[in-house]
Amino acid sequence: MIWKSLLLFFAAFLGGMSVFFFKGDNHKQLRLILSFSGAYLFAITVLHLIPDAYHGNDNLVGVFILGGFLFQIVLEQFSDGIEHGHMHVHEEAAFPVGIMVSLCLHAFLEGMPLAQGQQNQLVFGIALHHIPAAFALGTVLLSNKQSKNSTIFFIVLFAIMAPAGFFFSEALSNGNIGNLQHYFNRIMGVVIGIFLHISTTILFEAGPDHKFNRRKLIAVLLGVGIALGGFLTEL
């Protein structure tokens, strides 16, 4: 639906644009959003996406989940962990091509599960997750001497990737793109693997020394609790 696409777009766009208004490296609120969204995505993946992917009795789905997990590790060799809100500033002024390509591909794949039945809950988790990711992207672009207009252009490009993935996946699941709908669960397996890697990495890396302080613990419990509450109301 249109409102889901708009929510995904504006969450990433406004998150990226906020780089022009908030300076410095201490962004505690962004870290809390990361912790909440990571816990929420993990819970949604376990409660909804994995059972849905195995609903078709395809025994190879697990292979694709593992492949997606490993694929995200490869992506992060180019993205420097921006998916987790990490901001690694480099001294060179070259445009970070690897970061941009890997992050856009990541966002496109993240939008694909929204064609599934439980997308109403998942869309909020993805939107929240993209706020700190877009902020980190904007920070990296500015640190690499990109102009304000160029930075805005690439933030917009990133912001449209998740809605594009949603529309592609919807066309795929409806059989509008050849016969690829027969492989939809396997494609979703790749996305599930990516979600598992992203969410668990966020949970274990959002705090210093991998420790859960009180605020992070509350954010994680809220994320899991909201996802679990939504799941139980649907039983």
Results as ranks from 00 to 15, higher is better:
178 G>W: 02
206 A>C: 12
11 A>V: 11
235 L>I: 13
71 F>P: 00
29 Q>G: 05
1 M>L: 04
119 Q>S: 15
223 G>N: 10
64 F>V: 01
184 F>I: 04
142 L>E: 01
175 G>H: 03
25 D>K: 14
94 A>F: 04
142 L>H: 00
66 L>H: 00
10 F>A: 11
11 A>C: 15
42 F>W: 11
26 N>W: 04
134 A>Y: 01
181 Q>G: 00
165 G>C: 05
159 A>Y: 06
102 S>L: 07
232 L>M: 14
179 N>A: 10
149 N>I: 13
53 A>F: 08
100 M>E: 06
15 G>W: 09
146 Q>Y: 01
31 R>S: 12
177 I>H: 01
59 N>H: 10
76 E>Q: 12
74 V>M: 11
21 F>M: 15
48 H>S: 07
36 F>R: 11
155 I>S: 01
35 S>V: 07
105 L>K: 01
233 T>G: 03
7 L>A: 10
216 K>P: 00
30 L>C: 03
130 H>S: 15
129 H>R: 13
139 T>G: 04
181 Q>D: 09
160 I>W: 02
72 Q>N: 13
98 G>R: 09
124 F>C: 06
147 S>N: 05
156 V>P: 00
96 P>M: 13
220 V>W: 03
7 L>H: 06
91 E>T: 12
198 I>C: 00
230 G>C: 12
128 L>W: 04
16 G>F: 02
25 D>V: 13
59 N>I: 14
217 L>H: 03
192 I>Y: 02
88 H>L: 11
40 Y>A: 10
9 F>D: 03
33 I>H: 04
21 F>H: 12
156 V>F: 14
33 I>M: 14
4 K>L: 07
231 F>A: 15
127 A>V: 10
45 T>Y: 07
166 F>I: 11
67 G>K: 12
45 T>K: 10
180 L>Q: 02
53 A>Q: 07
169 S>D: 05
224 V>A: 13
174 N>I: 01
212 F>H: 04
127 A>L: 11
235 L>S: 07
164 A>D: 01
174 N>Y: 03
123 V>P: 01
74 V>I: 15
103 L>W: 08
187 I>E: 01
165 G>H: 08
167 F>R: 15
234 E>D: 10
200 T>G: 01
144 N>F: 01
77 Q>H: 08
72 Q>T: 13
173 S>F: 05
183 Y>P: 01
69 F>C: 05
38 G>N: 08
167 F>V: 08
101 V>D: 02
149 N>R: 13
40 Y>F: 15
109 L>Y: 01
1 M>E: 08
121 Q>S: 13
164 A>F: 15
48 H>N: 09
216 K>V: 14
187 I>N: 00
88 H>M: 05
